[in-house]
Design a protein around this nucleic acid. Structure first.
Lengths: 243, 243
DNA sequence: CGATCTTTTGACCCTTGTCAAAAGTTGTGG
DNA sequence: CCACAACTTTTGACAAGGGTCAAAAGATCG
C-alpha cells in the first residue's frame, strides 16, 4: 500500500512546482518503494554507502555528523519534501547520518537508476541540481549563524528558520507547530551546550518572542525573532522542485 | 589571448577526471571568455544576481556572506578549479559574495547557456551536480568544525584542509604553500576573533605543527594537525570533475 | 619616509560551557 | 493502574575559553 506519485500528497502544496504528466510518470517508475520507520530508526549512516535515495513523505528527522569523539553536529532538520542521499549517490562517502525523530514515511529510489535521470530527464536533473544548490545556500546561512551570531541570535535564527519551512509545508496551525525534537537536538544544531540552549529559550519566552514546550513550538512574534536574528530578507522561495 | 580549453593547464592535473574530446569541445563553446582581476576585486555579490558562472583558472579568492551589521562569515577559500556562481544560476539569490585575494584569472560562462548543458550534455550536468553535492559535503564538515570544535582544533582543521586542497592542485612546494590571505580571513572562516586566531596560530607554532608567516604556510606535522583536529579519513578524493 | 594595513601582546571580563541535582515526563511491566 | 526506570527539562553555582580593548611592533606602498 505505497502512495502512488499520482496522488502524492506533497505535490499539491503550492510551494512545490508543477510537474508535467510525463515527469510524474517518470517519478512513478523511478520510485522503487516506500519506507516506514519508527522514531529513533537510523535511515542513512555516514559510515556506509547506501544504494538508495529518499524523499521524505511524512514525519521529521535529523541529518547530522559525528566527530570521532562523539560530539554531534546536526546539519539540518528533515521535513516532508526533503530529498536525501544525494551525496551518497554521487560520491563514495555519505558524509552524514540521518535518523528519524517521529514516525516517518519515505519514498525510496535506487541509486542505480539515478544516472538514467540525467540521461533521459534533463528537467529532473536540473531540479536535482537546484535542490543541491539550495541546500548549499542554506548551509552557508547556517555557517554564518554558528560562526558569527551570539547564542540568543542563533536560537532566534534557528526557530524562525524552522517555522518558515514548516509554514510553507502547511504544518503549522495558527502560531503553533508540532515540533518533535529535543533541546539537545537544537543545541547540537546551533553549536551551543544543552544548558545554555535551555536558558536562551527561557529568554525568548520572557521576551515574548517564542515558546517551546511539550513538543509545541509557538511563534509569538516572528518579525521580532527575525529582527533579533538579523535574518536576511528570507529568500521568499516562490517554488521549489519536489523529487 | 584567452586560454583555449584544449590547452587548459588545470585539466592535466591528476585530480581532475579525464574529459572526452566531445566534452572539451563543448566546454570550448560554453566558455564565453576570460576574466582577469586584481586583488580586492569583487567578482560576485550576494546582493545582485550575476548572469555569469566562473571557473577559477588561477589565483585565490574568498567566498563569504555578510550579516546586516557587517559581521562576515567566510564560506570557503577559492582555489583553481573551483566552479562558482551556481547558486545564482539556479536561484534568484546568489547567497554569497566572492572577492579576489590575489590576481585571478577566471573562465566565464553565460548563465543563459547553462540550461543547454542539461539538455545536451548529461555527463556535464551530472558533473555539475557532483560538484554541488561535494560542496555541500564540505560545508557540512565546516559546520561541524565551527559548531563543535575548540579554537585550536578549528585552526588545525582549517590549515590541514587548506593544505590538502592546495596539495592536490600541486600548489605546494615541499612543506610550504604560498597562502595569500590575512589572519582576519581565517578568523572569519572559523568563527573566531582575530586576536584569538593569532594566539592560536602561535600555539600551533610552539607545538611545531605548522607556521604561517609572510604569506607562507608551512605544514610541519600534517598527521599531528589532523589528529588534533580529529579529522575524518579525509575523503581521499581520487578524482573530481572540472568545469 | 610618512600613511596605512597587518600581526603580535597584554590586561580584563563576559559569554558560554561544565558540573550537579532537582523537577517533570514518558514508557514499561507487574 | 501503580511503581519504577529512563529520559528530558530546568535551575544554580562555578569555571574557563574566547572576545574586546588598546597599543606596540612589523610590513607594505606610494
Amino acid at each position: 500500500m505505497s502512495t502512488d506519485c499520482l496522488n502524492c500528497p506533497l505535490r499539491s502544496l503550492s510551494i512545490f512546482s508543477e510537474m508535467t504528466a510525463a515527469e510524474v510518470d517518470f517519478m512513478r517508475q523511478f520510485k522503487s518503494g516506500e519506507l516506514r520507520v519508527a522514531p529513533g530508526t537510523p535511515i542513512l549512516s555516514e559510515t556506509s554507502r547506501s544504494p538508495q535515495l529518499f524523499t521524505v513523505l511524512s514525519g521529521m528527522g535529523l541529518r547530522y555528523k559525528t566527530l570521532p569523539d562523539g560530539r554531534r553536529q546536526v546539519i539540518n532538520f528533515l521535513m516532508p519534501g526533503d530529498f536525501i542521499g544525494l551525496q551518497g549517490a554521487v560520491a563514495a562517502e555519505m558524509g552524514h547520518s540521518v535518523v528519524a525523530s517521529t514516525d516517518m514515511t519515505l519514498c525510496v529510489f535506487q541509486r542505480s537508476e539515478f544516472l538514467s535521470l540525467f540521461q533521459s530527464e534533463p528537467q529532473r536533473a536540473y531540479d536535482v541540481t537546484w535542490l543541491a544548490a539550495t541546500e548549499e545556500h542554506f548551509l552557508g546561512e547556517a555557517l554564518a549563524s554558528i560562526g558569527q551570531r551570539s547564542a540568543i541570535e542563533r536560537v532566534a535564527w534557528g526557530l524562525s528558520q524552522i517555522w518558515e519551512r514548516a509554514n510553507r509545508l502547511k504544518l503549522t496551525e495558527g502560531d503553533t507547530l508540532d515540533f518533535p525534537f529535543r533541546q539537545q537536538d537544537l543545541a547540537d544544531t546551533l553549536g551551543l551546550s544543552l544548558v545554555h540552549t535551555n536558558k536562551t529559550l527561557a529568554k525568548l519566552r520572557e521576551r515574548e518572542l517564542a515558546t517551546w514546550t511539550d513538543r509545541k513550538l509557538r511563534i509569538i512574534d516572528l518579525a521580532g525573532l527575525r529582527g533579533l536574528a538579523m535574518a536576511g530578507k528570507g529568500a521568499c522561495l516562490a517554488e521549489r522542485p519536489l523529487m
